[in-house]
């Protein structure tokens, strides 16, 4: 799914004006547990989370996640934003809850990272 469709579906804002909205995202996972991200996420995934910490960016980098969506309108601090920029990870903020955001993306056709 194209990043622009994800932004529209989640009524999200991007935290970087240089975001590549044509980026293709393959899968999604939704969790606040970083080890779950490392255990289940596939490369080129999107992570939905309510956790707003630099650890999320570190985890995303290790797991080759390209896009992180913060739910319930939570905005990360400048440290987290600058770390994401350095690592080339796109950050979005959606006003929706984790549940609603996941439901909308699933309904729009984005699938959960398959268990391996």
């Amino acid at each position: 799914m194209k990043l622009q469709k994800i932004i529209d579906t989640l009524e999200a804002v991007t935290l970087d004006s240089t975001t590549n909205t044509g980026l293709e995202v393959g899968w999604a996972c939704a969790t606040d547990l970083m080890s779950e991200v490392l255990y289940y996420a596939h490369e080129n995934s999107l992570l939905l989370t309510g956790l707003v910490k630099p650890q999320v960016i570190r985890t995303a980098e290790i797991a080759d996640i390209r896009v992180v969506v913060f739910t319930r309108g939570k905005e990360p601090d400048t440290e987290t934003i600058s770390l994401a920029k350095r690592k080339g990870i796109t950050l979005l903020v959606t006003p929706l809850s984790l549940f609603t955001a996941s439901g909308r993306l699933f309904s729009a056709g984005l699938q959960c990272c398959p268990y391996t």
Partner: peptide, 15 residues
């Protein structure tokens, strides 16, 4: 609260 301590660390290393 920092997103760790889910009890998946060692299993993840093994996996």
């Amino acid at each position: 609260e920092m997103g760790w301590g889910a009890g998946m660390g060692l299993p993840n290393m093994k996996k």
